[in-house]
Design a protein around this nucleic acid. Structure first.
Lengths: 128, 128
DNA sequence: TGACATCAAATGCACGCGCATGTAAGTTCG
DNA sequence: CGAACTTACATGCGCGTGCATTTGATGTCA
């Protein structure tokens, strides 16, 4: 029984690893070559793109961090890259000057909408 | 239909990411703190430990590479680390001097057998 | 045999990550 | 008020990774 459960759980883990690696590698390659976006960069755009009907609305760094599996420092640098690329803007929060609000720029929304179909099709290919 | 499939596939991916990240983070932490092994190091030990009844038997780098999701260079360095730790030994192949045979040392087998229950219990906790 | 393609493995390099720490802004409580 | 604590974010640092290249050994074919 135990031995069987072990085998099951090991196989399950192998399968999870296989799906994760093949899918995220292809996502990374496709997003990078077609849209110049890394995977974690796209994921930030995805969160911002979903959270906001239009461009102006914002999310705090902490809130975004909670929606990804990135560390706080990794998110900070990812946002820095997006900001340098002009896809995202940081804006200080009036009520808590520690916090940063984040918003898609028009260019960011455009890039996101270009990249989203690529993202979707890779997911469908591997998980559909 | 399409919209639904998209949502399904996105949720499925989120869930895969969640399982992958939580499990591999805890695996990494537990293996590192309890046994001084990184995740990819343990995975190499696992392959060697499974492939061989006793210590002497070997596997080629290329064959191991095919069983992991590591790149060739990452595997090469992982094996270098294991070798420096005395857990694994490289041995030239007589018939093809390009190839390296790899074998667990006795210390490597011991470490693997100590670490395997940790690995198993983390997997059971998250996937069982 | 000699020129050329192929293969196994190692290595230089740039990059993104997490951890630990720093900085500045908010909070708590005497 | 003010000292101690906590929170939000940025940054220094070391590490493991993948990509591209190198080194050296094997095939192949004329």
């Amino acid at each position: 029984m135990e031995a069987e459960a072990d085998v099951d759980v090991c196989d399950k883990w192998s399968e999870t690893l296989r799906v994760y690696h093949t899918t995220s590698c292809e996502l990374e390659n496709e997003l990078q070559s077609r849209h110049g976006l890394g995977l974690s960069e796209f994921e930030v755009l995805l969160i911002l793109g979903r959270a906001t009907g239009e461009c102006g609305v914002k999310a705090r760094m902490k809130d975004i961090e909670a929606e990804t599996h990135l560390s706080q420092s990794a998110l900070s640098r990812t946002v820095t890259r997006l900001e340098k690329a002009g896809l995202v803007a940081r804006a200080a929060c009036e009520f808590d000057r520690r916090a940063n609000f984040l918003a898609l720029t028009p260019a960011g929304r455009e890039r996101f909408e270009q990249a989203a179909p690529t993202h979707r099709s890779v997911l469908l290919k591997h998980l559909g």
